[in-house]
Amino acid sequence: MTKIHPFTKLNLVFWLSIIAFILPNIYDLLILLIFDIILIILSRVPLFSKGFRKFVIIFLLANISIFIAWLLFSTRPGNVILFETSITIIPDKWIWHILITDQTLFYALSISLRTIIMFFLMLFFFAAISDRDLIHGLRSIKVPFAICLMMSLTFRGLSIFTQEYSIVRDAMKTRGVEFDKVSIIKKIKNFISIFITLIVLMFKRTEEMEASIEARGIPFRSKRRTIYHYYPFRKIDYTILCVLFLFLSFSIYLRIINGSFILMIIHLFG
């Protein structure tokens, strides 16, 4: 995994997410999910580590809610009725009709699978591509220096922003501002106050960072600029990008004909 160029990894994440939305069939999505899991294993994402566990649990709970919501609230006609009932919420005014068909189940499952695929791809993105690698990777493929520098500044800015957010929040607490035991409106008001301070601070920080770059005589455009960390684009990168392009084209084709790759294979081999 380390041999793959960061730009290729970025493309993998982006285009596989798009493909997850294009593929119409649940079996194909399952194949994509298996591929996703292989990626996760290869990139050694510590799924069960203390830090990740919390996110995985939150995501799974959210995903189960999405699945149940689709199941209960969408009434898709299908070939088999699995469950049907009506619940009177307000007599003569609101009767909740629950109809679960085979199609509703497939649809809810596919939505659920798509979000799982995207979540795993996101995990892969954070685990397999460091912000530093991404910037060096982009610079190596001649993405303009100004864009790479902006990205670097954004990453640094986020780190400073997080630190300052907790300081400002503490500073407000010292003036008697409650954040926990208050109404949502009050909470929003308090957060607006924090953000006013943070925005003023960020303006100052941006100015200081800009001055620091300018003071070192670092121009956005320079013909003589060299690259210290050069990440070459290898054969494996070209191969992955080609396969990805073919996969994308094939997915679009499947979408158009509303077909399935797995069913095609089964059909082909009898």
Binding site: R156, E208, M209, Y228
Partner: peptide, 18 residues
């Protein structure tokens, strides 16, 4: 705010590349 890049090495290299 003078530390712009992600590592010490990158920070020093930034000016030298220029």
């Amino acid at each position: 705010t003078q530390f712009i890049m992600m590592t010490v090495e990158d920070e020093i290299a930034l000016g030298l590349e220029t």
